[in-house]
């Protein structure tokens, strides 16, 4: 006969609570998601962090609970981390340094005629 086991505060055994054992296997089962939060209307979504979730719905709810508890956001995007492609740090020199000596790409490089207002 399967009696109900009672647990009180601070007394939930690890096998029931899903402590170390379960969480280590669920970490391998549940994919990692990257979370982007928009802090208010009109601003961009910014990367806030990452978390584990079984599906997109759960990822959004987890993000809501983990990253917006203190009114940090009005909108959440989540994407599975495996779909993020990153540039390689080894290629930094060829990718970014060529821009160093090209000041004419900044709008402030150009002198504006006095007639142009509101720039």
């Amino acid at each position: 006969m399967n009696f109900i086991r009672k647990f009180y505060y601070g007394d939930i055994p690890e096998d029931k609570a899903g402590g170390n054992i379960v969480s280590s296997s669920s970490k391998t089962d549940w994919p990692l998601w990257e979370v982007f939060i928009r802090s208010k209307q009109g601003l961009d979504h910014k990367h806030a962090g990452s978390l584990h979730a079984a599906d997109a719905q759960m990822a959004i709810e987890n993000a809501r609970d983990v990253y917006t508890r203190r009114m940090e956001g009005v909108s959440i995007w989540v994407v599975e981390s495996k779909y993020i492609h990153a540039s390689s740090p080894d290629e930094a020199a060829s990718l970014y340094e060529p821009a160093n000596d090209k000041v004419y790409r900044h709008p402030t490089f150009y002198d504006l005629p006095d007639e142009v207002n509101h720039m």
């Binding site: 647990f7 009180y8 505060y9 601070g10 939930i12 609570a17 899903g18 402590g19 379960v22 969480s23 669920s26 970490k27 549940w30 978390l51 584990h52 979730a53 709810e61 987890n62 609970d65 983990v66 508890r69």
Partner: peptide, 19 residues
């Protein structure tokens, strides 16, 4: 629900249930 605090199945759900 507060009894789950620190015992949730994963960190994210621990926070969810205590919220």
């Amino acid at each position: 629900n507060a009894e789950w605090c620190g015992h949730g199945p994963v960190l994210e759900q621990d926070i969810a249930i205590t919220n």
